[in-house]
């Protein structure tokens, strides 16, 4: 256990990176999910097909493959583009943070597409009709009726997406992101205690997923407060 003492700070830094990736990819994931759901629900055939392809591709491909492809692929492409301007350039580096964040946001976003789509469909038509009948505009109906109800329905599955997101951040260590697994590798090099170090990483992630689970439970209770009968 003394082996840990030197590494507390580093693990903390690594955890901060995990949190940063999580927040960034969460925002992107919601955006991708909403766009995808909107596309799937739209009348536009092309939009539906592209959204369909999006979900098939990213649900059928291993996460690590997407991360590797995005990372090495963009590096290659950016290098090629840069070389057009300046043939001297050998290699353009893509920050693993962004390649990884983007990759996992795309992946979980494809699952979120289905979740949001199902949730939008689950909004009772009755409440929408009533809102229109009361004179609310389409935009008002969207924000005051559809969206709140959709969130309530989507919340359990969305909680799972958030858990997937936080766990997928571990994969980004493969392309060199300086998060907890990466720190662990260095710590192992110095201390020769792989079991201890990886257990620490496991506990860190367990901590994160616990926070997420508790938050979702709280949000669910808040979201369903109008459904609970008086005691």
């Amino acid at each position: 256990m003394e082996a840990l003492s030197g590494w507390g700070d580093d693990f903390f830094q690594g955890s901060v990176v995990v949190a940063q990736v999580f927040v960034a990819s969460l925002i992107l994931m919601v955006i991708f999910g909403l766009i995808g759901a909107a596309a799937k629900l739209s009348g536009n055939r092309l939009a539906r097909t592209i959204a369909g392809a999006y979900t098939v591709v990213f649900r059928g491909t291993p996460e690590i493959l997407v991360i590797l492809l995005l990372y090495f692929g963009t590096a290659l492409t950016l290098t090629a583009i840069a070389q057009l301007f300046n043939p001297e350039i050998r290699f353009v580096d893509v920050p693993p943070f962004w390649a990884g964040t983007f990759a996992i946001a795309l992946i979980v976003g494809s699952y979120a597409t289905e979740t949001f789509r199902g949730a939008f469909l689950g909004v009772t038509p009755g409440s929408i009709e009533a809102a229109h009948a009361l004179g609310l505009s389409n935009l008002q109906v969207f924000f005051h009726v559809r969206v709140p109800e959709m969130w309530r329905l989507a919340l359990p599955a969305f909680g799972n997406h958030m858990l997937s997101l936080i766990k997928d951040t571990a994969l980004i260590s493969i392309i060199g992101l300086n998060e907890t697994l990466f720190v662990a590798k260095q710590a192992i090099g110095a201390t020769g205690q792989p079991f201890t170090m990886y257990i620490v990483v496991g506990l860190i992630y367990l901590g994160f997923s616990t926070i997420i689970t508790l938050t979702v439970m709280g949000l669910e209770r808040y979201g369903n407060r109008h459904l609970r009968q008086g005691t």
Binding site: L163, K167, D168, T169, A170, L171, S173, L181, A184, P194, F195, Y198, I199, V201, G202, Y205, L206, S209, T210, T213
Partner: peptide, 12 residues
């Protein structure tokens, strides 16, 4: 096992 990444489990 559902709260930790599978990669970490493999490494452990």
């Amino acid at each position: 096992f559902r709260g930790t990444p599978i990669l970490v489990q493999i490494f452990i």
